[in-house]
Structures are given as structure tokens and as C-alpha cells.
Write a protein that binds this DNA or RNA. Structure first.
Lengths: 344, 344
DNA sequence: GTGAAAGCGCTAACAG
DNA sequence: CTGTTAGCGCTTTCAC
């Protein structure tokens, strides 16, 4: 029932030295072929490359880190993100860490931690972290970011808003994304589009609402405040907002919720009110969480390239700090089954 | 707007040597205090410990790996898990990797890959991986597991079922979990409990159903085949199954779905049928995905300690292979708002 | 119990 | 363009 496949001892991989011997050059030459091929003569390079292939050599990242003295321990801090979001973030960060020879350390912060920025910063500094990725909504917590900078920990924030802390950041243009989604709804012929906002303790809801409002303005639509209702980024609040919206004298033909959880709540409330989605009511969300694909009908929403964002954040941490202050990636409007033209 | 906090160069941490000098001993002694404290004389040990504290020394994991020659590159393969599941898996694996000085490499397999086990196994072997964690439902794919073993890659599967490949595995007892959930429903007074199964290409649905059936049997309930309906582990299939169940002459007062996505679909269908949950219909799920906490009412379900399972799997990979073949962790029955006693 | 020497696999710094 | 010499921070092996 068991064979030697069970045991886990690092199979001795070929080393630089062996490659060098086989190619008849020094270790350094092989190292150069790997790291800066240009400065090696063509012929030598090819000979080395051949040896590498024959031996199926692959560099030992551990040794490389130690010798190069540039192995970074990068922390990923988060407080309460959805686990789906976190998963994608981890995948992206892990990929980039691997290619850069860095190590990823997950650091979950409790709600209590968030209250004491200095203590947290100190703890992280003592943990020997060389840099930190900060996921939303933690990345909007200015006192914490300030404390981290005061403690001398380089940070890259994942956040749509310039928080004024001067820390580098990566994001998508959420205003533009909300604008695009609203534009899409308008183009389909919707004239009354409800908007469900989010908690005003976060920056994202407002940014998204600005995109919504700009699209309406550009389309020459009058501003109707009764179509904008507050939400809390929760499913339940999406349901409640929808009940209010549907009770209006002239209810909307489409509802754009500032996140997917609320959009799912909108659909649930619509169904309870015996409305069909999208025939009687179109629903759009924001984030493309797993729920967007799961529920029925599946949700038209805005997708952020979360894994890519994390990878960029890791790269940014590895840079000198002078080069780039912020990276803005492209979003994607994902059209699924919850949006259609209004019933005529 | 920028300060030196931005730049990311590894701050020079104190080394073993410095600790040794400060404590007036050799490096070796310090190393021993760290790795096998017992063989160092008490007094020496304390002196070394003091020096470590004063200098805030922390061992360099990279150097340790290189010198020890036991840094493992561990792959985590998956095909189509939910990203929430994957996120938790990654967190657990990452933690355990860090303490063991291992490196985690994520390896997503495409649907095409799954068709060609040998190619995948070869690719992974060439990738220089020392071991592999296989997440469900990939872990139920016997041909793939066989190919991996044939290629000499030690595997640990995360799967509830003994697949006959002889690979080591970690899991919870899903039969017992389903039994516990059904028992809870019975205890509340439900006599007609519907069960929504899953795709018969996977092993989990059947295992869960066995727990359900055993609980009924033990409670002396007659077996009613009309209460068991097939599902596909999707939200939509949960809705459809519910429509069938509610159309029965004597509809159930509770529905136990074999996963959370379907349970969410059950709730949606109940609401469309103007039933209240849990007053008119109790609903239970399995997995405790994010959706279970998100939807309204929140879902009573079975929680697997996914992060712990991943951590165990990593530890298992690091072991000799002789010691433990399988690890079974405890599940948790999470009571939320979707279950109540039946209306009398 | 403790220490000295050697080396893990690689790259940095300097030569040639 | 290429090679030589050190040494990253730690553990291993073998002395004492």
C-alpha cells in the first residue's frame, strides 16, 4: 500500500556546478547566462543552454535568495475581505513572489488590532517583514497606514482611492467602471435606474456613485434623488433597498447595486415581489464575486483583475519606490443574465 | 510625499554569529538552543536566550533551508474549487509552509489538463515540485492521482473518500457530519426532511446522503424515496429540486441540501413560492461557504476546518510517509437562521 | 556539553 | 567576455 513515492526528500536536482562542468565553463558563466544573457558570447551561451536543457537544470531559488541577499518577506494584511477576494489576491501575490524569490506571509488583523495601529505596526516590524500589501477595506484606514509608515514598513495599498498617506497603490478606475455599467444600462433603454450605495465609512461606494451620476448627466437624464438609496454592502440591505425602490410611484426598470452581495439581495427581493429578472427588472452588481456566477440568474457585474492587482502590488514593493506611485489596471464589464432591455 | 519608507531593501537583521558573540558561545550552541534545546546545559541555554531576546534575533529561514537541505517546494493543485474554499486552503497551507520552511506553489489545472494525467504529472515533475497537495474535486480523480504517483510525486489528497490509490489524505468525516445535521433536524421535530443530492460523478454527495439515511434509520423513520431528489451542486439545481419537493402531496418541512450553493437555491425557490424560511420551511446546507453567511436568512450548515486541513496536509507531506496515512479532523455544525422547529 | 571546520547553491566583487 | 575568490546565514559532521 505504500511505495517510495510517499517519502518526501528533496530529490537532488542538478546544480550550477554540474551544468558548468558539462558545458566546460565556470559556474559564473552559467549564472550569467541565466541572469544577464546579453553579456555572454553567443556561442558560449548556446553551449550552456544546451547543458541546462540536457540536465533539466533549474535554479535553486533558496540559494539564489541567500546569495543575492534580496529575499523579501512580504506580508499580506487584511481584516474582513471576502474569502473569495482573498483567495484571488493570494494567488496573484504568490505567483509574483515566486518569480521574484520572495516569501509571502499572511497576516490577518483582528478588529481589535485595527483599533491600535501603533501596536500592529510594531508587531509587524518585529516580525521581520520587509514590506506589506494591504487589502481593502484595511487599505482605507489612514491611521493604520500612517503607523506602518512611521514604523518604517514599505506598503502598497490595494485601494481605489488616493488616501493622502502617500503610500503607493494599485487599483482599477472604479469611477470609470461604474460609469461604464450605467452607460450600458442607459444604452439598453433604461431610463429609471436605481442605485444602491454602500456604507459611508468606505470610499468605494461614493466613487462608484460618482460614475453612476456622471453617466446619467452625460446622457442628459434628470437627477432623481429618490432613485438613490443607501445600502450597507450586505445582501440584506440590498433586499431592503429594493423594497423601497419598488414601492416608488414610478419604480425603476433597472437597479445598479454598488456591490454583488447587495445585487444578489436585489434579485431575491425582486423574486419575492413576483418580478422576473431580467424581464421585469434588470440588476447589475460590482466586484464579480463568486456569488455573481452562482446565483440565478447570474449577475452582470464589474470584474476587477484581483490576482493581477496583487501581482502588481508585489512588483511595486520590489521596486525602488521612485519609479511608480500607482498602477491602474483595466476592469471588465461582465455581461451575464441579469440585465436586458426594459419591457416596452 | 515620499520618504525612505518606500524603498524595500532587507534591513539587516541580527545573525546567529552576533547572538553567539553576545552570549559568549559558539554559533553552534545558539543553533542548538534553537533546534534542540534539551541537549544544551540550562545555564548556557538561558544566556543564549537572553541574547536572542536583546537582539530581537530571528532565524533566517532562507539560510536555514539552504543549509538544512530540506526546503520543499510544495504544489497546490486544484481544478474548479470555489475561490472561497481555495482562499482558506491557501491560508492554511501558507502558515504551515512558513513554519516548516517550505514554499508553496499554486498550480491551477485546466479542464484540458485533467484529460491528460500523464502530461500533467510530467509537467509537475519537471517543475521541480517535491510534493503536492490535491484539492477536491481533483482529489477524487483516480487516474490523475495514479499518474502523479507513477511520476514519483508524493501527494496528499484533501478528500472525504478513500479512493483506493493509497495516497495519504486529510478530511472530515462527512458521513458523520450529514448524520449530525439530519439528527438536529429530527430533534427539532421535523418528520419529513427532503434531501438534495449532488452530481454522481463525485463521491461526496453519496457519502453525505448515507449520513442522512442513517440518521433517519436510527430515528425509526420510514424511507421515503420521493424526498430524495438529485441535484448538481449548483444554485439553479437547488431551486429546481425545491420546486419538485414542494409540489409533493405532502411536502417536506425541512430540506437538507448536500452543499451550500444548492441550499441557497432552496431558499430562493421557497421565497418565490411565498414560503417563509425558517417558519414554513427549514433549510440546511453543507460546507459553510461565504454564501452561507451572506444570504438572508443566513444558512445553518456544516463547517469544515479548511485552513487546518491544508496545514495538516502540508505537515503530512513533510513526514516520512510511514507514520500517518490519513488525518480526520472535526467538523462543526454551524447554527444560523435558516432552521427552526416545524410549524405545528 | 560544546566548538571548529566545511559546505548547502548561488551571486557579488574583482581580476584578467 | 570569462574566471577566481569570497561569502550570504545556517546546519552538518566530527572533534574535544
Amino acid at each position: 500500500m505504500r511505495n517510495d513515492t510517499d517519502t518526501l526528500t528533496r530529490r537532488s536536482q542538478p546544480t550550477l556546478k554540474e551544468v558548468a562542468e558539462r558545458a566546460g565553463v565556470s559556474q559564473m558563466t552559467v549564472s550569467r547566462v541565466l541572469n544577464s544573457p546579453d553579456i555572454v558570447r553567443q556561442e558560449t551561451r548556446e553551449r550552456v543552454r544546451a547543458a541546462i536543457t540536457e540536465l533539466n537544470y533549474r535554479p535553486n531559488l533558496v540559494a539564489r535568495s541567500l546569495a543575492g541577499g534580496r529575499s523579501l518577506f512580504i506580508g499580506l494584511t487584511y481584516n474582513n475581505p471576502s474569502s473569495g477576494y482573498l483567495g484571488e489576491l493570494l494567488i496573484g501575490a504568490l505567483k509574483s513572489c515566486r518569480s521574484g524569490g520572495h516569501h509571502l506571509v499572511v497576516e490577518e488583523l483582528s478588529d481589535g488590532d485595527v483599533e491600535e495601529p501603533e501596536r500592529v505596526a510594531e508587531r509587524l516590524r518585529e516580525g521581520g517583514l520587509d514590506g506589506l500589501l494591504v487589502a481593502p477595506p484595511l487599505s482605507e484606514n489612514a491611521p493604520l497606514i500612517e503607523a506602518l509608515r512611521a514604523a518604517g514598513i514599505p506598503c502598497v495599498l490595494i485601494t481605489p482611492a488616493e488616501t493622502g498617506t502617500g503610500a503607493r497603490r494599485v487599483a482599477i478606475d472604479e469611477e470609470a467602471a461604474a460609469h461604464a455599467m450605467t452607460g450600458q444600462l442607459l444604452r439598453l433603454g433604461h431610463e429609471r435606474i436605481g442605485f444602491v450605495s454602500g456604507p459611508d465609512t468606505q470610499l468605494a461606494p461614493d466613487i462608484r456613485m460618482q460614475g453612476y451620476e456622471r453617466a446619467l448627466r452625460e446622457a442628459g437624464q434628470p437627477f432623481r434623488s429618490e432613485l438613490i438609496v443607501p445600502g450597507a454592502f450586505t445582501y440584506r440591505s440590498g433586499m431592503e433597498a429594493t423594497e423601497r425602490l419598488l414601492a416608488l410611484e414610478e419604480p425603476p426598470t433597472a437597479i445598479f447595486a454598488a456591490n454583488d452581495d447587495m445585487a444578489a439581495g436585489v434579485i431575491a427581493a425582486a423574486h419575492r415581489a413576483a418580478l422576473r429578472v431580467p424581464e421585469d427588472l434588470s440588476v447589475a452588481g460590482f466586484d464579480d464575486t463568486e456569488m455573481a456566477r452562482t446565483i440565478w440568474p447570474s449577475l452582470t457585474t464589474i470584474r476587477q483583475p484581483i490576482a493581477d492587482m496583487a501581482a502588481c502590488a508585489v512588483d511595486l514593493l520590489g521596486e525602488d519606490g521612485q519609479e511608480r506611485r500607482a498602477i491602474v489596471l483595466d476592469f471588465e464589464l461582465v455581461e451575464r443574465d441579469s440585465v436586458a432591455p426594459p419591457a416596452s
